[in-house]
Design a protein around this nucleic acid. Structure first.
Length: 493
RNA sequence: GGCCCCGUGGUGCAACGGUUAGCACAUCACCCUUUCAAGGUGGAAAUACGGGUUCGAUUCCCGUCGGGGCUACCA
């Protein structure tokens, strides 16, 4: 186990779990499961101002719904502060870092745009033909201007050198140190604070070292940060892990996915009634491919095939239509017993669930779900248009009435059909079939007229499984009763 | 603006110097059919552009264009 890979997913509670984060988590999880390694969850909550602790539960719930179980954690960086302080101290001691007394406002006080303006206004370094940037703190190893001023700790970038690292997806990377700013490690302490809080760079690297992370699999938006972290690893006397940056997921307009693009949170897809495994399958294929033509891959198959070598370098556009296709496939192809718990959950949610369907009438329940599922796209379909299969309380769909209850002979015909069905000695598919067709023939109407009208009468919908299968699922009593009950409504139109 | 990354049909991927450029979603047509799906068959649809290198470029190099990322005491 000494060489067993250790990976982590490190969300920060500044928002909900979105599809991009979920995909990153999935890749880490697939990698860990494939390699029989360890998947660690770490919450990066060092930005007290933007943090929303209540979001943590939502993120964990999203991961659980997706089935991405973690082996260690969740760890919270906010509870590991001494670690980062110690690391900062040791970097200070070794000269790899220095105290910076520049007032934070000088850099814009946390706002990128404002910072940009200040950089343009206040010359610190001018690039050839470029704009002015604050690359180094002008007070390197400076002194406080007043007694109570607290310093930030910055990393000292060695100019003139080149930093390189190997990325499992993007290959060899090299960057001139002159392009890297003296980034902050520890923020300056606020009044009343003993020490400052770590920034992302410090927190991530210290924890990745301490947690013995072997592979850092994360979004490509971190590619540009990686040289800083490589430098940090070395300054802390640790060997950098393998980095694997995965391409980003974009909206249909090819810009970064945001609320503007509609549903982007994992929980919204859970709420809509997607199956977690379908979602996993879909997500796995965004930025990764097994190289084969088949796309319907159950989770154990994904685990068996996953490798970093299959990860793409191109950003991908989120395509909801394809997600739905996967969901339909899973609704259709899953062994029925695997689907049942999801349908049960949906019926419970809709207040339609009856305990006996899990016990004495389990077989009926399984058969009925099996009958309905070819026509479902999302779980709620079972309780919306499939409602009449699970409840005697349902409405006649307006469009269905409009379309199939036009003929004025219908009240009489359906009344007769009810009688004929009621008189049937045996209740089976063919008996119902014959009863209906005989009646149609005797009345001189097409069987389709009765079939369509009856469907509306017994399930309230124009869309339903084949009629005689539906009759069997409902049972004689319900079918005859519903037929007779529909007569007034039929007449009234 | 600077630095970096990416660029195969509308979308997700395959082809990692030699294929009639493959698969899937979406789309169109047809088949199946009592509704609606699912399913089946077939069609339309791509190597961003311009230069090289090579016997031969989707593939390698350069430029242009397009998109993305980073450029915070955010992560």
């Amino acid at each position: 186990m000494a060489n067993s890979p250790r990976v982590r997913f490190a969300p920060s509670p500044t928002g909900y779990l979105h599809v991009g984060g979920a995909r990153t988590a999935l890749f880490n999880w697939l990698f860990a499961r494939h390699e029989r390694g360890t998947f660690i969850l770490r919450v990066e909550d060092t930005d007290v101002e933007r943090n929303k602790p209540e979001l943590v539960d939502g993120i964990l719930a999203g991961l659980k719904w997706l089935g991405l179980n973690w082996d260690e954690g969740p760890y919270f960086q906010s509870q590991r502060l001494p670690l980062y302080n110690q690391a900062a101290e040791s970097l200070l001691a070794s000269g790899a870092a220095y105290l910076c007394y520049c007032p934070p406002e000088r850099y814009g006080g946390g706002d990128a745009n404002e910072a940009e303006e200040i950089k343009e206004a206040e010359e610190v370094k001018e690039k050839p033909g470029g704009i002015r940037r604050v690359m180094r703190c002008s007070c390197r190893d400076g002194r406080p201007t007043s007694a109570d001023q607290k310093p930030a700790i910055r990393f000292r970038i060695l100019l003139g050198a080149t930093t390189e690292f190997e990325d499992a997806v993007f290959g060899r990377r090299e960057i001139a140190n002159d392009e890297i700013e003296d980034f902050v490690l520890l923020r300056s302490a606020k009044p009343g604070q003993e020490a400052g809080l770590p920034t992302y760079q410090l927190g991530a690297v210290v924890d990745d070292i301490e947690m013995r992370i072997t592979h850092v699999i994360r979004g490509a938006d971190h590619l540009s940060n990686t040289p800083k972290q490589v430098l940090l690893y070395r300054a802390l006397g640790a060997a950098p892990p393998v980095f694997a940056h995965v391409p980003l997921i974009l909206g249909a307009d090819r810009t970064r996915l945001s609320k503007r693009h509609g549903a982007t949170s994992v929980s919204s897809y859970a709420d809509e009634g997607f199956l977690p495994e379908a979602f996993r399958n879909f997500l796995a294929l965004m930025g990764w491919s097994s190289g084969e033509d088949i796309e319907f891959l159950r989770t154990d198959e994904l685990i068996g095939r996953f490798s970093l070598a299959g990860v793409s370098r191109t950003n991908a556009v989120f395509d909801r239509a394809k997600l739905e296709w996967f969901n339909v496939q899973y609704l259709q192809k899953l062994p029925i017993e695997e689907l049942l718990p999801h349908v049960q959950h949906e019926l419970e949610r809709a207040g339609l669930w009856q305990a006996e369907w899990g016990t004495a009438r389990h077989e009926w329940f399984a058969r009925t779900v099996d009958l309905l599922r070819p026509r479902t796209r999302l779980l709620p379909n079972f309780s919306t248009w499939g409602r009449a299969f699970f409840s005697d309380v349902f409405d006649y769909d307006a469009q269905a009435r409009e379309k199939f209850w036009k003929d004025e002979r219908l009240p009489e015909l359906l009344g007769k059909l009810a009688d004929a069905l009621d008189a049937l000695p045996d209740w089976n598919h063919d008996a119902c079939d014959h009863a209906l067709r005989d009646l149609a023939a005797a009345a001189g109407v097409k069987a389709g007229l009765l079939i369509n009208a009856t469907r509306v009468a017994i399930v309230g919908q124009a869309v339903a499984p084949p009629l005689f299968d539906t009759m069997l699922a409902l049972g004689k009593e319900r079918v005859v009763g519903r037929l007779r009950r529909s007569l007034p409504a039929l007449v009234s139109r």
